[in-house]
């Protein structure tokens, strides 16, 4: 990476990132990419998030689901860890609570493959800074 030398260059770089991200998604089955985020802070790891991470990456790959699995920090749902957020194409993100391997399997088979809701969803209970006071 070459150093970013000005504010303008940073803005351009962000646009570039966005463009690459968008085109990558377009390429991947014209927007059929499933995004999975797994909370992996100390607390979530202690609750077993690493096992879920390994399972999800492997299982999604084996079952031929085009998915992007990423780790993220914790969303603050300590009572419900491990949590994972699944975003189906053209859907709002959904956060699943208390995920174990069995539940993860169910999420892949029912929700990701067929769009059928699985129990144990945490509703989004906060506003982002862009939603309010703008």
């Amino acid at each position: 990476m070459t150093k970013i030398k000005s504010f303008e260059a940073l803005k351009k770089y962000q646009e570039e990132l966005k463009r690459i991200g968008d085109s990558m998604e377009e390429v991947r089955n014209a927007g059929n990419l499933v995004k999975v985020k797994i909370a992996m802070a100390t607390c979530s790891n202690a609750a077993g998030a690493e096992e879920i991470m390994n399972f999800m990456t492997e299982a999604l790959d084996k079952r031929g689901v085009d998915a992007l699995v990423t780790k993220t920090g914790c969303m603050g749902y300590c009572y419900a860890e491990p949590t994972i957020e699944v975003t189906l194409p053209n859907h709002e993100p959904v956060v699943f609570a208390d995920v174990d391997v069995q539940k993860a399997d169910q999420i892949i088979e029912s929700y990701i493959k067929q769009g059928e809701m699985v129990e144990g969803v945490i509703p989004v209970n906060y506003k982002t800074i862009d939603e309010q006071y703008n």
Binding site: K37, T72, C74, M75, M117, V121, P123, N125, K127, T128
Partner: peptide, 22 residues
């Protein structure tokens, strides 16, 4: 949409935690 804790109202605003979990 599941109704686990539907009552959890949007009283939170995330500034410091804006990117955590995102």
């Amino acid at each position: 949409v599941a109704t686990l804790t539907e009552i959890a109202v949007k009283k939170q605003i995330r500034i410091a935690l804006r990117n955590c979990g995102v």
